[in-house]
Amino acid sequence: MRFLILISSFLISTLCAAQEYEVEQKNKMFSVKEITLKKGDTVHFKNSDKIFHNVFSLSDTQFFDLGSYPKGESRAVKFETPGKVEVECAIHPQMYMVIDVKE
């Protein structure tokens, strides 16, 4: 959890239903192995490596392919369906994490 940056203020988040999270791609790893969030929350996948990454999920719960993007760029996914979402990097298969979306 130490690398997980909660970019929305906690004070604001208590007033809003949906939260926004940031997961980094750094040293060919995701900054967290697993996170739990609520339906409607958004995760920003930020590339902090000098190389390209390509975050995707082929999970039944939610499918997405964020395409390849370089250092400094971030792409977001809003999670609308409860369930487990396995997230990988297409280029670097050792990069793997799970997002547990709760009702």
Binding site: F56, L58, D65, G67, S68, E88, I91
Partner: peptide, 14 residues
């Protein structure tokens, strides 16, 4: 190549 295993666009011919 890898696209046969993971159907992600960047992996076509990878």
């Amino acid at each position: 190549g890898r696209y046969h295993i993971r159907k992600v666009a960047v992996l076509k011919g990878a």
